[in-house]
Computed example of a mutant assay.
Amino acid sequence: MALNILKLCVGCDSVEDLEEWIAFKLDERRRAGEPVEHFHTTRMVPSRTNEVTSGGSLYWVIKGNVQCRQLITEIRPFVDGEGIGRCKLMLDENVVRTDWQPRRAFQGWRYLKAEDAPADLGKGHAGLVAMPADLRQELASLGLL
């Protein structure tokens, strides 16, 4: 069974912000002549790599709620210029919106078992996806999402 990773999405106020940032970074890499691939760099390398890369996703916590996920396609450990071990979580550039799930702030990342992960928003939730981010946040703070 696939194992997921849970991470705070620092600097983004909404899923739309995350999508814009991904598009910007991919365009930057394209213009620089670098491989057009999307990744998130982290210090700790997951020890359960095979489980994570067997269909696991990176679930993003935005403004106190898990709101979306990206498929993890590969984990690439490396040593940075300062000699510190890190890894790149290679991600599918498509962002999949999920049911909102409240989460407290934490440092780093956490494993997230498949049975504890929020469900993807289905096609029947088009109105929720189209709703402005600030309205979704307000409804979530009231416990209505």
Rank of each mutant, 00 (worst) to 15 (best):
K25D: 06
E28F: 09
K113D: 12
E74R: 13
L121E: 05
A2C: 02
R97K: 12
K25T: 07
P46G: 01
E37R: 14
V79M: 06
R103F: 01
E93I: 06
Q67V: 04
G85C: 14
V61F: 01
T49G: 01
L8M: 13
S54M: 06
A126W: 10
P102Q: 05
N4R: 03
P118N: 05
V95F: 12
I5Q: 06
S14Y: 10
T53A: 05
W100A: 09
R29G: 01
V61I: 10
E37I: 15
E115P: 11
R29D: 02
E93M: 11
R69W: 05
R48L: 06
N4S: 06
H38N: 03
L18M: 12
M90D: 00
S54I: 01
R29T: 03
R104D: 03
S14F: 11
H38G: 00
L89W: 03
W109K: 09
V66M: 08
D80A: 11
L26R: 07
E34T: 08
G122S: 10
S57G: 10
Y111A: 03
A130R: 14
L91R: 09
F106L: 04
W100I: 04
E20Q: 09
G85H: 15
A105D: 10
H125D: 10
R110A: 01
D17Q: 01
R76N: 08
L26P: 00
R30N: 10
T41P: 03
D134Y: 11
S54P: 00
V129A: 14
V36P: 00
D116H: 02
Y111W: 08
V45G: 05
V36R: 14
A32W: 13
E115Y: 00
G127Q: 04
R97M: 11
V66G: 01
G11Q: 07
Q107P: 06
E115W: 00
S57Q: 11
A119H: 14
R76A: 04
I84G: 06
V61L: 04
A23C: 09
K63A: 01
V79W: 05
F106G: 04
S14N: 13
C9E: 10
G64L: 10
I22V: 04
G11M: 08
E20R: 12
A133V: 03
M44N: 13
A32P: 04
Q101G: 02
M131W: 04
W109Y: 08
K25E: 11
L135Y: 02
L112N: 00
G33S: 13
R86S: 01
G55S: 11
G127A: 03
L58E: 13
E82Y: 02
G122D: 07
L18T: 00
F78V: 00
R104A: 08
E115D: 07
W60C: 09
Q107H: 12
R76S: 05
Q101F: 03
F24H: 14
N94A: 08
K113T: 15
N94Y: 09
C87L: 05
R29N: 02
A23R: 15
R104Y: 00
G55H: 11
G83Y: 12
S47A: 12
E93P: 01
A32L: 15
